[in-house]
């Protein structure tokens, strides 16, 4: 993966987060939560910085980041799509839903569309089993989804975010 250079602002944010947990190694997971919340994802460079601040090895930080499914090392799309793969959704056809989204967006689970608009992930149980199968786009929950509806749901976001062409300053 190509190296990215963290901006001064990002470095400050990460350092502040670490400091707010007193640079305590035992608070690593809380630090990572906070960093991901603020930065969106946790690239290798951020992990290196956190390791340095908490005075622990990069391997340990990486070990924790990759262990937990909640942490992302890749940037998420503008509209992250999550398909619930809990058992209740599975028996009500979540697999077909996932297949259809993959087909429509032409990406695999864990990837983003080239324009950065959508990313696709699976999650384990939203807790809305009464609405199975469930798809989440950002924070919005779509319940009782049928494969035929996918095109419409995606279009909602695609059309909703057609913005006037941007000009580079």
């Amino acid at each position: 993966m190509p190296k990215i250079k963290l901006s001064q602002r990002t470095i400050e944010i990460v350092k502040e987060i670490c400091l707010s947990f007193e640079n305590n190694e035992g608070e690593l997971i809380n630090v990572l939560h906070e960093a991901q919340h603020k930065l969106g994802y946790l690239p290798a460079e951020v992990q290196e910085l956190i390791a340095h601040e908490l005075n622990m090895s990069i391997a340990k930080v990486y070990g924790v980041v990759t262990f937990y499914s909640f942490f992302n090392m890749l940037p998420q799309g503008e509209f992250p799509i999550s398909v619930c793969m809990g058992t209740a959704c599975y028996v009500r056809g979540a697999e077909q839903i996932l297949h259809e989204i993959k087909r429509q967006l032409n990406i695999e689970v864990g990837q983003s569309t080239p324009d950065g608009k959508f990313s696709l992930n699976c999650l384990r149980c939203v807790g809305a089993c009464g609405l199975a199968p469930v798809v989440m786009v950002g924070e919005k929950v779509y319940g009782r989804v049928a494969p035929q509806q996918i095109r419409k749901i995606i279009a909602e976001y695609q059309e909703g975010c057609v913005r006037p062409e941007k000009h580079e300053m």
Binding site: I29, N30, L32, H33, F67, Y68, S69, F70, F71, R124
Partner: peptide, 8 residues
């Protein structure tokens, strides 16, 4: 509170 991060 302590937060889990998605590991069964």
């Amino acid at each position: 509170l302590r937060y889990g991060a998605g590991a069964f």
